[in-house]
């Protein structure tokens, strides 16, 4: 990958893609969300899409703050409703490329219904779901992605609920592009984001990210760097893997890669087809 280049000193090459008046951001040291945002900014630059026709919507939570740091038309909406909000934008103005950047609790728990329905309709949007296995902003509660037997503040004896497998959920709901990377796979993540940005339809990229403050502290996994080292040793790239096999347990092997890449008419394709049919009558 060619990094973004600018030669002026003291100006980060991504500064023009970010709201620099808001940096430093709120994320803790060792958190992977910042890395996901960097990869996203690099992916935006790499995809060479029209940034004025691109907008980003976030829900609430740690990852929900992303919209506030990216210099696009950006919306920070209510808990879980980012996809619903983005659906409105996309359908009202199909020329826009909408990106939903939010967390696992936001998108899969409270926004789970919107997630599966947007995937079913194949709304043209890119969903980047940062999965840190926990509700971090509220202090480390069980999320729908928390692996079995993992400790959290609301599961002091270990989580008793089986977690969602996000790629499988997206795949079975009808997403056209599904990938999973960790915060360590920055280049592949960047390439994946650039690729998905150009793909019409509902694309989902799951980014597994270390939560140094809650997930790893409650479970005694060290700091953010230790979690990154864990990803380094325990991830395996398997492109095209059946999404059924992508469950993540507590400190088990994580399979990453691009799992789904298919074609399906988007909601607006079908809608316009219906509309043009009506006009002929």
């Amino acid at each position: 990958m060619e990094p973004l280049r600018k030669t002026e000193k003291d100006i980060h090459p991504m500064d023009d893609l970010l709201r620099m008046d808001r940096i430093p951001h709120i994320w803790c040291p060792g958190c992977g969300i910042g890395t996901a945002v960097t990869a996203f900014a690099a992916g935006l630059a790499k995809a060479e899409i029209d940034l004025t026709k691109t907008c980003i919507v976030s829900g609430i939570g740690c990852t929900g703050r992303v919209a506030g740091y990216v210099k696009l038309d950006s919306f920070h909406t209510t808990h879980g409703r980012a996809i619903a909000f983005a659906t409105g934008i996309q359908v009202a103005n199909p020329d826009l490329k909408v990106i939903v950047f939010s967390g696992d609790g936001d998108l899969i728990s409270i926004g789970g219904n919107h997630f599966i329905h947007a995937a079913r309709r194949n709304i043209n949007m890119l969903v980047i779901c940062v999965n840190n296995f926990i509700y971090a902003m509220t202090g480390g509660q069980v999320a729908p992605t928390t692996p079995l037997a993992t400790y959290a503040t609301t599961s002091p004896f270990g989580c008793v609920e089986p977690p969602f497998n996000i790629p499988y959920l997206a795949d079975s709901s009808g997403a056209v592009y599904v990938a999973r990377w960790t915060a360590l796979h920055v280049r592949r993540l960047t390439n994946s984001i650039a690729e998905a940005l150009k793909k019409p339809g509902f694309s989902v990229i799951e980014v597994i990210s270390p939560c140094a403050m809650y997930y790893s502290r409650i479970n005694r996994l060290g700091d953010g760097l230790d979690m990154m080292k864990f990803y380094h040793d325990n991830t395996e790239i398997r492109h095209g893997e059946d999404t059924k096999n992508l469950d993540i347990g507590f400190q088990t092997k994580i399979i990453v890669g691009k799992f789904v890449d298919r074609e399906r008419p988007t909601y607006m394709d079908s809608y316009n087809k219906w509309l043009s049919g009506t006009k002929k009558d």
């Binding site: 990094p3 280049r5 980060h12 920055v186």
Partner: peptide
């Protein structure tokens, strides 16, 4: 070698390299 990995992995937009 100007690979740019530090630039992309940095969560704080605090480091980058130029050729």
């Amino acid at each position: 070698v100007n690979c740019g990995l530090c630039e992309t992995i940095c969560p704080e937009f605090a480091i980058w390299c130029t050729l």
